[in-house]
Amino acid sequence: MRFSVLASGSTGNAIYVENDEQSFIVDVGLSGKKMEELFAKIDRSAKQLNGILVTHEHSDHIKGVGVLARRYQIPVYANEKTWQAMSPHIGEIPSDLRYHFNMETTRTFGSIDISSFAVSHDAVDPMFYTFQEDGRKLTVITDTGYVSDRMKGMIAASDAYVFESNHDVGMLQMCGYPWSTKRRILSDLGHVSNEDAAVAMSEVIAEKQTQIYLAHLSKDNNMKDLARMSVTQTLKSCDVIVGEYVHLHDTDANEPTPLVTV
């Protein structure tokens, strides 16, 4: 498998995954025009997609779902409650392109097994995905207020993670957000901080080469350098040394990461 984090952040999210036979995108949180630009930067096209996998109905994850699905006749997969919540916001999707991907299930597409798992976020029924092929595993997990033991069991020993590292707690506490917004972000239905993300990482990574992409960074309450430093230090305190077999990578709200092999 190969993947690229096309965009990650509060302004829009999209993760591209492919093998030699087919390709998928997890969420389409940007406009159709912007998505075309991002695909071009990794020498791919949305018209090649075999499916759109939706995690939840927030606009930074579904903004371009309807546009791409209709333009290129791409099947869209989401659980029933997410379909109900997002349908008013993505326009009409033909019935032959609407598919249900139930929570805590696995669907097989050729040689790729894609499994869904529940997360804790203030959406109607949010879930994320793991991709497995030939003993290799990619996990996408963002938009969760905490990482439960059940989640850890689902994502353990992945070869690559797109892992939320949303905010620095100090920056969030000092920022100009209303207290209600701060409370939401810090809650179990919000987003994980740099430190909490790193603690969860330390409990799921195996002693093998593991690539971790720090994702969904807050544009107001985090910075790439700060996220990397905080995650590195917290992992070290958990006896995981970055650079030995764990490698951290940045993601960006406007630029895709290079297409890499899992």
Rank of each mutant, 00 (worst) to 15 (best):
E18H: 00
A40K: 11
E164N: 05
K33F: 14
L172M: 02
T142C: 10
M223W: 00
N222I: 04
A200R: 02
F131V: 12
H121A: 11
S187Q: 03
H167P: 04
S115L: 11
H216C: 08
Q48W: 05
R136A: 15
S158I: 14
T261E: 14
I112P: 05
T234Y: 07
S193P: 02
M229H: 14
Y99A: 13
G66V: 13
L38V: 12
M1I: 06
V65I: 09
K137G: 13
H89G: 05
S23W: 02
N102M: 06
K63Q: 10
G32V: 06
F128M: 11
Y72C: 12
N222L: 03
S87Y: 01
V242R: 03
K41I: 10
Q211L: 05
F39W: 11
M223C: 08
H191Q: 03
S45E: 15
D250M: 12
M201F: 06
D125H: 10
F131A: 07
Y99M: 14
K152P: 01
Y213E: 12
R107H: 11
E37N: 13
Y213R: 02
S180G: 07
V262C: 11
I93C: 03
K224C: 13
S193D: 00
H100A: 15
N222P: 04
A157F: 11
A206S: 14
A118Q: 14
E37H: 14
D134I: 09
K47P: 01
G170V: 13
E195N: 01
I62G: 09
H58I: 03
A78R: 00
S8K: 06
T105G: 13
H58T: 01
